[in-house]
Design a protein around this nucleic acid. Sequence first.
DNA 1: TAAATCAATAGCCAACGGGTTATGGATTCG
DNA 2: CGAATCCATAACCCGTTGGCTATTGATTTA
Lengths: 107, 107
Amino acid sequence: MGEAQDLLFSALADPTRRALFERLCLRGEQTVGALTAEAGVSQPAVSKHLGVLKRAGLVRDRHEGRQTHYSAKLDALSPLVDWTKQMSGFWESRFDDLEDLLKRMDQ
Amino acid sequence: MGEAQDLLFSALADPTRRALFERLCLRGEQTVGALTAEAGVSQPAVSKHLGVLKRAGLVRDRHEGRQTHYSAKLDALSPLVDWTKQMSGFWESRFDDLEDLLKRMDQ
DNA sequence: TAAATCAATAGCCAACGGGTTATGGATTCG
DNA sequence: CGAATCCATAACCCGTTGGCTATTGATTTA
């Protein structure tokens, strides 16, 4: 099915990448340098991971001078919620609340 | 963090594997042969994928004579719901209902 | 018992993914 | 202007992964 879905699931599969996304969710917008400082891998590695997250729609970037700020796009998680809902079968209504919230989160 | 979480996310990353799991969710218990018939890959490949899904806790197997029946373990998805909840930050209360349901589903 | 079927394992191979260092372009600072 | 900083890209390495065929063990069927 969805190419986007594939990007989403495989983007979240890597622990380092997931940690980056988690950090962005927890601490808000961060520069590449700040993320690199705690990532445990090199700056190019971080940049590459951020690229993958961006293509999956999980983050956005904002350029300011020579530095790039990244932030999480929480609404990108709704396809995941959607999929879980389909797998689970029933309970649509219970998920719908969350999905709406996610969609309203960033703009 | 969780080793189990890693297994879960990476198990769901592969499209073929996700399709197998989806089929088990949708159609219920299936033999390896039945799954192979529509998987588009060889029987050994299907067996290997099922092994990965099993180690991630996403499926269980039941041996009956010379054939093995696999079925989805829906409650294995709750860590995923859990994680999404954490990323979303707030709204725990809205998720709690679902999580309880998932946990009660199979045994 | 012999033949056939089912599924798991073994062994192999090509492709991919995540890591590194090196480099370059853009921007800020002295 | 020259030096330093920030980040992205390039080039490369190597371990992992997903696929295949061949085989084997177990069970059913003839």
